[in-house]
């Protein structure tokens, strides 16, 4: 991470109301290239709504999200044309869903799942696409012999790793992750976390990770935002917030973890 870099993603006074319910209230932060931000909080705290606003899938009721496009210009996501938005989704961003079935095409082969993102950005040489797909399968520790199998034949952990390969193959600069380890066995989680941690630092990715698991936040993120009732109640360096929590709710979260 270089010093004096310009922010990649800027959220300003984001709010979202669903009818009379305020799902997110007045949230602002800045994310720099290579930085991993974790958003923690219990179910219903507004984490996922926030993630959807940040990734242009939900329009904020007020406030705005700006993103620095590859030409270096910071643009309001709302002002983007359809082509620019598609470009972000297809190449510059990744989105890892908790449920791999939402992020993968379950009936087509693993190789095609990874290759599809490459074709979307104009790759058309079959051999090169296949080679790149195999090398990504290896990187996420999937046996290349399984390249022609559909992910519905994969285990939960393998699906999640395939989803990561599919997202990272276009070398995005920003990845959104929604409970990436949710619903996996602990041993599978550890492997996935270790893999994600390595890839994020190797590729210098910026990421916003929504999780309710503080151990995931500690292992993956540099910074932490704690949400409750749609508001960010505490924020800071991850180890600082976890080791020296100031807010009552954060203290409750931290003290609720059972030591292994």
């Amino acid at each position: 991470m270089a010093e004096n870099e310009q922010p990649l993603l800027v959220a300003e006074n984001l709010s979202k109301n669903f009818g009379r319910l305020a799902a997110c209230r007045d949230i602002s932060f800045t994310l720099y290239p290579g930085e991993v931000l974790a958003i923690v909080g219990e179910s219903g705290s507004g984490k996922t709504t926030l993630l959807q606003m940040l990734s242009a899938q939900t329009t904020p009721s007020s406030g705005r999200v700006s993103y620095r496009m590859r030409d270096g210009v910071l643009r309001d996501l709302n002002s983007l044309g359809e082509a620019e938005r598609r470009f972000l989704f297809r190449t510059d961003w990744g989105y890892v869903h908790q449920d791999a079935a939402l992020g993968l095409r379950m009936a087509v082969s693993a190789g095609a799942n990874v290759g599809e993102r490459l074709m979307a950005v104009g790759w058309n040489h079959y051999g090169r696409i296949r080679d790149t797909a195999s090398s990504w399968l290896q990187r996420v520790e999937i046996d290349v012999a399984r390249i022609d199998d559909a992910p519905r034949t994969y285990s939960g952990g393998m699906r999640q790793r395939l989803q990561i390969a599919r997202n990272l193959v276009t070398e995005p600069r920003l990845v959104f992750m929604d409970e990436p380890t949710g619903g996996l066995d602990v041993s599978v989680q550890a492997r996935l976390l270790d893999l994600m941690r390595g890839l994020v630092s190797e590729l210098g990715l910026a990421a916003v990770v929504v999780t309710h698991d503080l151990a995931v936040a500690r292992l993956l993120s540099h910074r932490l935002m704690v949400m409750k009732g749609g508001q960010v109640i505490e924020t800071g360096l991850t180890d600082q917030v976890l080791d020296d929590p100031h807010e009552p709710y954060t203290q409750l979260l931290v003290s609720s973890i059972l030591p292994p």
Binding site: M1, E3, L219, G236, L237, Q240
Partner: peptide, 26 residues
């Protein structure tokens, strides 16, 4: 700012705690 502290830890301050916080598998 958190960003500055991270930069300090990368290049200026090292910390040897009593216990190793091991990352699984590394």
């Amino acid at each position: 700012e958190p960003r500055d502290i991270l930069s300090v830890r990368r290049s200026t301050i090292g910390y040897v705690s009593q216990f190793l916080r091991a990352v699984p598998r590394v």
